[in-house]
Nucleic acid binder design. Structure first.
Lengths: 338, 338
DNA sequence: TTGAAAGCGCTAACAT
DNA sequence: ATGTTAGCGCTTTCAA
């Protein structure tokens, strides 16, 4: 009789006893099933609010064998605005389906991703949206065969056939480079993330294809690979500018790198052109001109989430690949004055 | 026998049958309980991996009556970097407790917040971290009495006694204004969010206290209240600058307003001083000088999460209020060249 | 060391 | 219109 004991939550039976009805009747009332006399229903409702009863979602979904009204989202890093925008979009759509969202970060670590995936399976989420970190997702196959639905976001799956929503990385990068070439640039410094990341590979491929088409030889001295944060990007830009025959323009493969490049170019008062993949909110306040390869991040998240709910709703059609287009946008604070 | 039927996941009984043991033995093995012959355990493990068994977390926690290894986070808007930083911090700490995080947005809507809170209760989360939107949280009391733990973040609770972690809003704003006064400013434009929001009230109180102490009368013409986004902030700054006897300095009450103010001040080439509450990642690249009232956002999230897990761990001490300090930092891209 | 029986809180399937 | 029984997948309790 310790008063520190957490009081047990009332169950459906407690409510039934208090209302003088059977548990099944309570169940009917709280689930709005038809066929309960209004008078009885009122008694039940009164008991519910008197006892502070709240139906146990887990018990309910266990018995009815259906959905848990939960989906999972596996991303690299929730603190990155790109991913938090996606998480917010997914959560908002999930809410319209009365579904909760569990978000986990894999930190670009394939093993962690796999652990997280399996844990979400144990939790019996109704489906998952995955930004894949590794390059082999055959480990998901048994779960898929047992009914787990998943949609891959931003990067396609490998070793498994599944829905995916990606952006048009190669075409976007290609268009950006073509633009630089049109302005007369012939030496373009390239700063890009590790090639183990799909988007980095694709973007670099876009760059190379544009250069090749223009007959410009690919110069290894102008490419820095494996750059993962702004400081490394700033350093990469610095060393290229300090080299012989420095670039007159730079391409940065993601928003983190773009920020590092802006820092370095501004510090040096360099007038090199800058082309960055990914738009970002404060791009309009950056202290120098730049062009960004932009796309609708929310649309990326929306398309993936809608696809997932189609699957959860029973869609068994052949897996689809959705590609979100990109476009070039001029940024930089100088535009505010024009 | 429709092949479209999603195959049922194997249960503990299926594994038991396949391994020729009882369900309880399987349970012992998968929970690492002692007292199972190694040989038997191996049989069980073999059956587990052959069938692709994954223990159903919900069934498990239902029966053992304990925790669900899930916590909830109620914030205003996951797309806002302030909140996504907090969500990332909370999720990371939760992971060290093998706990999943469900994040929901209340969009500054008290009714939505309440609905979300009750839904998380129905899910039997082990606890919640709440950035309260409304001004009355007595509705949480029945749940707290039945064992729900919660910690309030960034804003204190009302109508209920609970742990909270907030920042030192008034002192931070006060220190910032004192700084402006020291530089000789006497007319300071104030741009602040709706006073229904605790942080806005506190920050405005800090401003007023600093002004009062310096013997400067509070001028309503220099205060814009209810500003919720950058555009409104830019407009507020514009109208004050266009007024008679315009301010020589501005105080903006949060990062959104600060951004709007920067836009407007930059556009006009105004040399008015700017003091903004909240630091933000790209503050170092803003095209004009500003001072920010900074604090450790991650520490805010960390302190709240640690407190919550203490509660979940059984701590029943008197509710605590943790206050995170602030400090002034110079920002703006011009610092990069010095 | 192993297993049988009961039950967590709820609902499906069947009475009445 | 209401109630009874059984059982979701697991673990507790207790017996062997």
């Amino acid at each position: 009789m310790d008063k520190q004991d957490r009081p047990r939550r009332p169950t459906i039976s407690d409510v039934a006893a208090a209302a003088g009805v059977s548990p099944k009747t309570v169940s009917r009332v709280i689930n709005n099933e038809p066929g309960v006399r209004a008078e009885l229903a009122d008694q039940v409702l009164a008991a519910v609010s008197k006892l502070g009863f709240r139906r146990n979602t887990m018990a309910s979904s266990l018995r009815s064998g259906g959905q848990t009204a939960t989906i999972g989202l596996i991303i690299e890093d929730l603190a990155n605005p790109f991913y938090s925008t996606i998480a917010a979009t997914v959560a908002n759509i999930a809410r319209t389906h009365d579904t909760h969202l569990i978000t986990v970060s894999s930190e670009e670590n394939p093993e962690l991703e796999q652990r997280q995936f399996l844990q979400l399976c144990q939790r019996r989420v109704d489906g998952m949206i995955i930004v894949p970190a590794g390059s082999d997702h055959s480990y998901t196959r048994p779960e898929v065969e047992m009914g787990m639905r998943m949609v891959f976001l931003d990067r396609p799956p490998s070793g498994i056939l599944a829905d995916s929503v990606v952006i048009d990385n190669a075409a976007g990068a290609r268009a950006g480079i073509v633009d630089l070439l049109k302005d007369g640039h012939r030496r373009i410094g390239v700063v890009i993330d590790s090639p183990v990341i799909y988007t980095a590979r694709e973007r670099l491929a876009g760059v190379r294809s544009a250069l090749a088409e223009a007959g410009i030889p690919y110069d290894d001295a102008l490419v820095r690979v494996g750059v993962t944060n702004p400081d490394e990007a700033a350093h990469a830009v610095a060393t290229m500018l300090d080299g012989v025959d420095p670039p007159t323009a730079f391409f940065t493969g993601n928003n983190r790198s773009t920020i590092g490049a802006i820092q370095e170019l501004y510090r040096r008062d360099s007038d090199a052109a800058l082309l960055g993949f990914d738009d970002f909110e404060l791009a309009t306040l950056m202290p120098r001109p730049l062009t960004v390869i932009a796309y609708d991040v929310q649309e990326l998240g929306r398309a993936a989430t809608l696809r997932l709910f189609e699957r959860i709703g029973g869609d068994t059609s052949w897996p689809s690949e959705t590609v979100i287009p990109t476009h070039l946008v001029q940024r930089g604070v100088q535009l505010l004055k024009s």
